[in-house]
Simulated scan of single mutants.
Amino acid sequence: MSETYRPEHAPADHPPVMRPKIGILVANLGTPEGTDYWSMRRYLNEFLSDRRVVDYPAWKWQPILKLFVLTRRPFSSGKNYRSIWNTEADESPMMTITKRQVAALRAAAAERYGDAVMVDFCMRYGKPSTQDVVERMVAEGCTKIVFVPLYPQYAGATWATANDQFFRALMTIKRQPAVRIAPEYFDHPSYIDALAQSVERVYAGLDRRPDVLVASFHGMPKRYLMEGDPYHCQCAKTVRLLRERLGWGKADIDITFQSVFGPEEWLKPYTVEHVTALARAGKRNIAIMSPAFSADCVETLEEVNGEIRHAFMAAGGETFTYIPCLNDEAAHIAALMEVISENLRGWIDV
């Protein structure tokens, strides 16, 4: 199909226009461009200045952020990123994995829809920015866009801020495309099945079955739950559905929360404290997974498989099995394509 055409009934001198397409835009959190101080500072400043992430009044938070957090945290965060950095591609694992996910989604979409759709990705923080990608998709003929945040569970600090940025980008477009926002997919049968397959695959290769599987989700202040954020409830339902799909008992999977930041009480139990308690209670062989992350990143590779592993082993643990995120596994790509296809209905049906 030609990329440009002359509209029917248009005069002969009418300039060619881009042939209409449907855009599929997936979005993830983002990543620093490098591990040096200034790259980390730029990324952390954008991330921690987002009112969806830290909702303290600007007059109170910004001085703390600029004078204290951003003078020290870039060093420690840079060290954490360096421990997992993809040095060959000079990018973070999240970026590497997201590119692979998008390549797989493009292939799957092309097989199903031909050249009627365009698949791309953006990051809420850092590059490629939502603004740049939306502008490019519109320029290349996307008159309709399905926006898919790659967060299975809804949270204001992830899902909502991704949507906010997408809407901000649309505000600058003179001829806005029609848009749809794919809903969170925490209980989608294909997503649950993909999680279960990842557990079964890892367990099948172990000499000894772990005493318990810990499902560690990214945390958030408990106050957000009390203010109506459904994240905690959706995490709990994900774990229940996973347990049912695996055919396990309630004692076989624990739910915990990681990445505590700031002085407030966060969702509990905290992962690092929980795994330490497990080891001291005699459960010295555990497996752990992070169902809230669609791609392995610093929170899973460095925090879970690094810091939390070390805490567990230091407390007397014997084996710590990390189950990777779904990343670009075939079952995950198939699940995402189901979510996308469901949200394309009425626009393109195959």
Rank of each mutant, 00 (worst) to 15 (best):
A315I: 11
H232V: 09
W85V: 05
H232W: 08
I340E: 09
G317Q: 09
I340P: 08
L65A: 06
A331E: 03
A169Q: 08
H9T: 11
P32H: 08
Y56K: 03
R243F: 01
S341H: 12
T31P: 01
M18N: 13
V350E: 15
V146I: 15
E227S: 08
K174A: 13
F293V: 11
H9F: 14
F121V: 01
V202C: 00
D207I: 06
G282R: 06
V260C: 14
Y113L: 08
W266M: 11
P230M: 07
Y43A: 04
D55K: 15
C297T: 04
D132V: 15
R41A: 10
A103K: 15
Y125L: 00
Q153V: 15
L225R: 12
G316L: 09
V146C: 13
P210H: 03
E91N: 03
W85A: 02
H310W: 03
A281C: 12
Q131L: 08
L195M: 03
E302G: 04
Y37D: 05
L278E: 07
T300Y: 11
T130P: 06
Y270V: 05
W266G: 06
R209A: 14
E342G: 14
Q176E: 10
S341N: 11
P291T: 12
E307I: 14
P7F: 06
T130R: 11
M94C: 04
P269K: 09
P230T: 00
Y270C: 07
S83C: 04
I22G: 12
V272K: 08
Y56I: 00
A12D: 14
E303A: 03
L267T: 01
A287P: 12
T172I: 04
G219R: 13
V272N: 13
P324S: 11
F257L: 07
A277M: 13
E273A: 01
A277C: 10
P189V: 08
H188M: 06
F166C: 12
